[in-house]
Amino acid sequence: MVTHPDTRRTETDADIISAACRSPERFAAVFDRHYRHIYAYAARRLGPDLAEDVASETFLVAFDRREKYNAAQPDARPWLFGIALNLIMRHGRAESRRYRMLARTAPDEQVAAFDNLVAGRVDATLVRGRLATALARLPRAERDVLLLVAWAGLNQQEAAAALDIPAGTARSRLHRARQEMRKALGADNVGSEA
Rank of each mutant, 00 (worst) to 15 (best):
L117R: 10
A194M: 11
M1S: 09
F63Y: 06
R130L: 14
R44H: 08
Y35P: 00
P5L: 05
L135A: 10
L147C: 06
D64E: 12
S18M: 13
Y99N: 03
A160D: 07
L135F: 13
R121C: 09
E180I: 05
R173G: 04
S18D: 08
L87F: 06
G92F: 00
T12I: 13
R33E: 10
L146D: 00
R26C: 04
R140Q: 14
R98Q: 11
A113F: 07
E57Y: 02
Q110N: 06
G168L: 10
Y99P: 01
V54F: 08
A136W: 00
G92T: 11
E158S: 12
R143I: 14
L131W: 05
H4S: 15
V111I: 13
D6E: 07
Q110D: 06
A71Q: 10
Y35G: 05
R77F: 06
R8S: 11
E67P: 00
R100G: 11
M1N: 06
H175F: 09
T125D: 12
A28T: 15
F59M: 09
I83E: 01
A43L: 07
H34A: 08
N86I: 01
R143H: 15
I16F: 02
L117Q: 12
R8Y: 08
P78Q: 05
T12L: 07
G92S: 08
W151T: 07
R26I: 04
L87M: 10
V127H: 07
I83P: 00
A160P: 01
A177G: 14
Q73M: 09
T169L: 07
H34S: 08
S192W: 10
A28P: 00
A94K: 01
E67M: 13
V111C: 13
A42L: 06
L185F: 11
I83R: 01
P74D: 15
P78R: 02
